[in-house]
């Protein structure tokens, strides 16, 4: 494959054909926020935080899954992009019922940091019934607090990439979607062991290592 010319934020770049906009931008020191992206895994385009403005495109495009092509002109932080990202983060905070204020780990929360980067305060939106689930302590290796889950599905994907695992999946539909084990059962230790991969990838505090007492 050859190279193509693209213009990202006014920088004229020559990048390898077939790489994504995100990869091209990162290789040239331009930062685009992501939530559901896992480096070197097939992208999914779920969270939509990485959207960028592509000239002559009707909609914004997800940078994690759109390959570059000759002559693309891309804006990663135009006012339109920033406004959309802000509403997306606000929406994530709306349905999410985490107790982040007194969470000691808040500074490790990717969503929390994204919200402060984009100056999103308390969301102005409401939903009829927020997604609330009691925290689950059934597994000695993973504590699940799905109220904080933003449905990025990273845990599902990393678990599926481990041979013989593939324990998690998405259950239900639409706003009521939920990350489930089996047919929405407790996550038992016979299946889920101590690899800790999902905890590593979780962008919020939904999955954490249980505190030993």
């Amino acid at each position: 494959m050859g190279n193509v010319n693209v213009n990202i934020d006014g920088k004229k770049l020559r990048v390898r054909e077939g790489v994504t906009i995100l990869e091209a931008a990162e290789a040239n020191g331009i930062k685009i926020p992501t939530l559901c992206h896992i480096k070197d895994q097939v992208p999914t385009g779920i969270c939509r935080v990485c959207v960028v403005e592509l000239e002559r495109s009707r909609t914004l495009v997800g940078s994690c899954h759109t390959p570059v092509s000759e002559g693309m002109v891309i804006h990663t932080h135009s006012p339109k992009v920033t406004a959309v990202r802000r509403v997306i983060v606000e929406l994530m905070l709306t349905a999410h019922t985490g107790d982040c204020v007194n969470d000691t780990n808040a500074e490790n929360c990717v969503l929390h940091n994204l919200a402060s980067d984009y100056e999103v305060g308390a969301p102005r939106f409401n939903v009829k019934v927020p997604r609330f689930y009691p925290a689950e302590d059934s597994n000695p290796y993973v504590r699940r607090n799905l109220s904080k889950c933003i449905l990025c599905r990273k845990c599902v994907r990393v678990c599926a990439s481990i041979p013989g695992k593939n324990i998690l999946s998405v259950g239900y539909r639409g706003f009521r979607s939920k990350i489930v084990a089996g047919f929405d059962e407790a996550l038992l230790s016979e299946k889920c062991r101590d690899c800790g991969k999902c905890i590593e990838h979780c962008p919020t505090g939904a999955l954490s290592a249980p505190v030993k007492v």
Binding site: I88, M92, F125, V127, K128, V170, G174, F175
Partner: peptide, 24 residues
């Protein structure tokens, strides 16, 4: 639309729910 949203991407999954709340 809210009922039929597949729930994959954030703007539609959460956005239709919020719009439904406002319109309701």
């Amino acid at each position: 639309l809210n009922d039929e949203s597949c729930g994959k991407c954030t703007p539609c999954r959460e956005g239709t729910e919020v719009m439904l709340e406002i319109l309701g």
